[in-house]
């Protein structure tokens, strides 16, 4: 246990360093001491620096922490629930639902006769459309989870939802203008930087409720490591647990997708990375570990996406995979197999 405490404090330390790194980088170069002064509302040489740090970089860093930790936790929950190392936060089709919602708003106007197309372009419209899409998929999955005994069937239903929505999005894309298509593609790149403090606050509330639900699932997730039969013989209420896990994942991953777009890879990769470092299968330890690990990885990816020293920002979704995929491949080659 002493050992694990060391890991925990090292994790926290790296997290703090990542936050400092993240907020000190950006398209405008601001000296580190001035960045720290802005955070603590001390005298800053340029007022614009303070605005950049407090109103842009800080909320972005917070968003990165919430998105990274949330997706990593969702990935862990799904991997344990389905006892499948390939599962991630979006296996149940949440991001597909969100994509469909957004695609209908951005590209559906050409199909439905351009009703108030101008109105549709506020950011909140996208958030609401994406939430509605995720929510409908969530309802369908929860409904199915009550009827279906076999958890694996649920996984396949999730994949089918993803195919269905992808097909509808394709049809919509086919009929839309290049400008509409571009808007949709930009949404699908994901973005951490567009959130105001109020939006970060809303995202935090969803994140927090998902985390609290997950904490109540910790004990049963451990039992599920043995498989459903054993878990049941240990007194686990399988369906109730499944319901809670899916609800927690949907709250977290759904809200993240709504605010930051479908961010790939973090949810799949972080639980594997953490398992390579932490010598434990106990979710009481894994849950905080993936939260910290996810936040660190997301902050680092975002720092790289800023392309330090230039005014360009790369799509975050590309960076997460560009960084993450080689790491997972390296682990696989080194360790021969990924266990869940």
């Amino acid at each position: 246990m002493k050992n694990l405490a060391t890991y925990f404090w090292i994790g926290i330390l790296v997290l703090i360093l990542s936050i400092i790194l993240n907020i000190s980088l950006g398209s405008v170069s601001i000296p580190l001491d001035e960045v720290l002064k802005s955070i603590f509302h001390l005298d800053v040489t340029k007022e614009s620096w303070q605005i950049i740090v407090v109103d842009y970089r800080l909320p972005k860093a917070f968003t990165a922490i919430l998105v990274g930790s949330g997706l990593a936790l969702s990935g862990l929950l799904m991997q344990t629930l389905f006892r499948n190392p390939l599962a991630g936060p979006y296996v149940l089709g949440l991001s597909s639902g969100a994509s469909l919602g957004v695609a209908l708003v951005l590209m559906g106007s050409s199909l439905f006769g351009g009703v108030a197309a101008g109105l549709f372009l506020s950011k909140w419209t996208l958030v609401i459309a994406s939430s509605l899409g995720s929510f409908l998929v969530l309802l369908a999955i929860l409904g199915a989870s009550f009827r279906i005994k076999d958890t694996m069937a649920l996984l396949i239903i999730g994949l089918m939802f993803a195919s269905l929505t992808a097909a509808v999005v394709s049809v919509l894309s086919y009929f839309s203008s290049s400008q509409q298509l571009q808007q949709y593609v930009f949404w699908s790149f994901g973005s951490l930087g567009n959130l105001s403090w109020v939006e970060v606050g809303i995202l935090f509330l969803f994140w927090l409720s998902g985390i609290i639900l997950s904490i109540f699932c910790i004990k049963n997730l451990n039992a599920l490591l043995l498989g459903e039969h054993y878990a049941k013989s240990l007194g686990t209420h399988l369906r109730r647990n499944r319901f809670l896990v899916i609800l927690a994942t949907s709250l977290i991953a759904g809200s993240i997708t709504a605010f930051a777009g479908p961010i790939a890879f973090i949810g799949l990769a972080v639980p594997h990375l953490v398992r390579q470092i932490i010598p434990s299968s106990n979710h009481l330890i894994l849950v905080p570990a993936v939260l910290i690990g996810g936040a660190i990885l997301m902050l680092l990816c975002d720092s790289i996406a800023q392309l330090p020293g230039s005014g360009l920002t790369l799509p975050i979704n590309a960076i997460t995979s560009l960084i993450g995929a080689p790491v997972v491949i390296w682990l696989l080659v080194r360790k021969k197999k990924l266990l869940f």
Binding site: R83, I215, F216, I218, K219, N222, A223, L225, L226, G227, H229, Y230, L234, G235, T236, R275, P279, S280, S281, N282, L284, L339, F340
Partner: peptide, 29 residues
């Protein structure tokens, strides 16, 4: 059971520990 679909990432001690599941508190301490 005959099935061995459980997580092979568990250590032997962790697996034996899971037997205490019915008796531990809500966090499994």
């Amino acid at each position: 059971l005959t099935e061995t679909h459980f997580s092979k990432n568990l250590s032997v001690k962790e697996l034996v520990t899971l037997g205490r599941h019915p008796y531990t508190n809500w966090l499994g301490v």
